[in-house]
């Protein structure tokens, strides 16, 4: 099963729709709660990054019998130094984002920790694509 969601740029009120919906879908098909939690957290952090850093984007979830693949893509500014961006605590988020509880530089490293396979592709001026694979076992 493949589902797709748009992430609105800058709209904090609508952020998290993709992860909330994917969580409900996975609950309905009986995926273990701890696995759903990893998927929901990884997707939510990815959505927040799209919204905060890239002016919006797209979340695709491919829900398969063995696992789920989440692809989060945007046509934002791209990430100049991926190694730096992957470090815990490194963030370019403005203060208003920190006041909302984000921008601590923990998102990308946590997405990697939650997933069984993590891939990030980014090109300055073109955008970013993050692919996370989650196995049910």
């Amino acid at each position: 099963m493949k589902v797709e969601y748009q992430v609105p740029g800058g709209d904090f009120d609508r952020a998290g729709e993709a992860s909330a919906n994917i969580k409900k879908l996975l609950q309905r098909i009986g995926i273990p709660a701890d696995v759903i939690r990893r998927i929901a957290i990884g997707t939510y952090e990815g959505e927040m990054n799209c919204l905060i850093h890239a002016g919006g984007g797209r979340v695709v979830a491919e829900i398969e019998p063995e696992g789920t693949v989440i692809i989060i893509s945007d046509q934002g500014p791209g990430i100049p130094d991926i190694q730096k961006a992957m470090q815990e605590g490194w963030s370019t988020a403005p203060d208003y984002v920190r006041a909302m509880g984000f921008g601590a530089g923990m998102g990308l490293p946590n997405m990697m920790k939650c997933s069984d396979d993590f891939n990030i592709q980014s090109k300055v001026g073109e955008g970013s694509t993050i692919t996370m694979k989650f196995l049910y076992k």
């Binding site: 939510y44 509880g101 998102g107």
Partner: peptide, 25 residues
């Protein structure tokens, strides 16, 4: 008050105390 820390360091069935009152919580 940092939701990214909550997302990174809590386990299931954790009680969250926070001074941040917004929808992200």
């Amino acid at each position: 008050d940092l939701m990214s820390d909550v997302l990174a360091f809590t386990k299931r069935k954790t009680l969250l105390l926070t001074g941040l009152a917004n929808m992200q919580v």
